[in-house]
Simulated scan of single mutants.
Amino acid sequence: MTVSAKTEYACIAMIQLAARYESGQPARLREIVEAQGIPQPFLVQIMAQLKAAGLVLTSRGAAGGYRLAYAPDRISLADIFQVIEGSGDQTESNLQKPTPATEALCGVWGQICQARTKILEEVTLANLAARVAEQPDEMFYI
């Protein structure tokens, strides 16, 4: 499965917001950029899309930034994929003349898309934030 950099960055930014959700503190764009290594111009576009879709809220001022619009257990990866990529489920043949073989393949492509969607719907930001929290911090030895 190929995931665009834009979608991956969106998921990473949302996981960071999920980790802060309980504190109620918004995250500044610069904090996300520095912590995750996402190019700032790219992240600005991503956050604008997520805001327009109602997945994140913004606040202005010295204590402003981005925060999740809903609890992390209510936002799935499917929600983020839908905002950034659209449905993206192509199950039609690219060939001009359909044959029984292409029809059979299209049936399989459809099953793959359904399975992908099911998994994306089951994984929430809360799940992912918990996985991140379980990871040991990197240690550097000299």
Rank of each mutant, 00 (worst) to 15 (best):
L77T: 02
P98A: 10
K6Y: 11
A78L: 11
A71R: 07
A18R: 00
A63L: 14
P39T: 07
F42D: 09
I84G: 00
G64C: 08
D79W: 01
R20N: 10
P100V: 08
F81E: 02
F81P: 00
I75C: 03
V44F: 12
E134L: 15
K6H: 14
K51I: 06
P136A: 11
Q96A: 13
A104P: 04
I15Y: 03
M1K: 14
V132D: 05
I84L: 03
Q36T: 13
L68W: 02
E31V: 08
D137F: 11
A52E: 15
D137T: 10
V108T: 11
I84K: 00
I142V: 12
L125D: 00
T2K: 15
E31W: 07
Y66K: 05
L17T: 05
Y70D: 09
I46C: 02
P72N: 02
P136L: 04
E92Y: 05
A129C: 06
I119P: 00
Q90W: 04
T2V: 14
L105N: 06
G64W: 11
L125S: 01
V83H: 00
M14F: 06
P41F: 07
D137V: 08
L105I: 15
A5F: 13
E138G: 13
V56A: 08
D89W: 01
A35F: 06
A133W: 03
N127C: 08
D79K: 02
L29W: 03
L95N: 06
V44M: 11
F42I: 09
K6I: 14
A115H: 07
L17P: 03
P100E: 08
M1H: 14
D79L: 01
I12W: 10
I12L: 15
T124I: 06
I80Y: 00
T58S: 15
Q45D: 14
L128R: 04
R67Q: 14
L43E: 00
L95A: 09
Q49R: 13
P98E: 08
S93C: 09
Y21S: 07
A27G: 06
L68T: 03
E34T: 09
P100Y: 05
T99G: 04
V44N: 10
R60F: 14
S4D: 13
R116Q: 06
R131G: 10
G37S: 12
K97Y: 15
A18K: 01
